Simulated scan of single mutants.
Amino acid sequence: MALRNAYLAMCRAFPGGAEAMAAAIGMPSAAALNNRMYEVKGQRVHVDTALAMQAASRTTLFAEAIARESGGTFVALPHIDEEIDNDELLKKFSQIVEQSGRLARVHTDAIEDGHLDEVEEAALRKVAATIHQRVEELLAVTVRVYGKKSEDGDGR
């Protein structure tokens, strides 16, 4: 069900909706795309089609759905165009510390009554996902600044 929701959301995110998405990814019609999304008569959206939909919609919805289905969290890595230095690394560390403090506050509030409800769990997961993303960003920036340089001068 999560995958279908991702497919539908990618169509909504694409200008022109499902009809335009179908044309953009080479499907003959929106009906053909819908048949795959709703698995009519055993049809399915193939991974390469889902990736094409994701690229066309300029989202990460398919990757996020796959991560959730796999019991994980999708973390988008930053696209780094500008020069990066130690100040940027310090900023990333500060964001991690700040979010860790936020997690501690949310956690304390959530378990104060000895019970964790769905809203409290969602709040904890949201802060945790932010921390995961910040750690991955820190690593990406660190590799960019200090990683082994390739022949063309770029990081790894």
Rank of each mutant, 00 (worst) to 15 (best):
A67I: 02
E98L: 07
L103G: 02
R105E: 07
T49Y: 05
I96C: 07
E83L: 13
R102F: 02
R134C: 04
D81F: 10
L138K: 00
I131W: 05
L138Q: 06
L51Y: 08
I66C: 10
V106H: 01
E112W: 09
E137M: 01
A55L: 11
A63C: 02
D48H: 14
N86M: 15
V97H: 03
D85I: 00
E137C: 05
R68N: 07
T130I: 06
E64P: 02
D109W: 06
D85G: 15
S57E: 06
E120G: 01
L51H: 05
H115A: 14
I84H: 10
R58D: 15
T60S: 13
S57V: 04
L138S: 03
V97Y: 13
D81H: 14
D48E: 15
V127F: 04
E69A: 11
L124M: 07
D109P: 02
A50C: 03
V45L: 10
K92E: 15
R68W: 04
V97N: 07
T108A: 13
M53T: 07
F62L: 08
R68A: 09
R58S: 14
V106I: 12
I131K: 05
G71R: 05
L103W: 09
L90H: 12
D117Q: 06
L103P: 01
K92Q: 15
T73W: 04
R125L: 12
R125S: 02
D81Y: 13
I84E: 14
R134Y: 11
E112V: 05
N86W: 14
H132C: 09
H132N: 13
R58Q: 15
I96Y: 09
H132M: 10
D85L: 06
E112A: 12
E136L: 09
I66L: 15
A104G: 00
F74M: 08
V135D: 10
D113S: 13
K126Y: 10
L103H: 04
S94Y: 11
A128I: 03
A128P: 01
A76M: 06
Q95F: 14
S57M: 08
V75Q: 03
L61G: 01
L103Y: 10
A67N: 04
R105T: 09
I66Q: 15
A50S: 11
E83V: 15
V127H: 00
R102D: 04
L51Q: 14
R125K: 12
D117A: 01
D48V: 12
I84D: 02
H46S: 08
L51G: 01
I131S: 05
T49M: 12
E64C: 04
R102Y: 01
T108E: 14
S70P: 00
E120K: 00
I80L: 15
A63F: 04
T108Y: 11
E88I: 10
I80V: 14
I111R: 07
Q95N: 13
T60G: 01
V119F: 05
A63N: 11
L77G: 13
E118H: 03
R125E: 10
A56E: 13
L138A: 13
H107F: 13
E69S: 11
E112M: 06
T108W: 03
G72N: 12
L51W: 06
A65E: 03
A129H: 05
A110Y: 01
L103F: 12
V135C: 12
T59H: 09
P78M: 09
V127W: 02
I66G: 04
L90P: 00
T130C: 02
A65I: 00
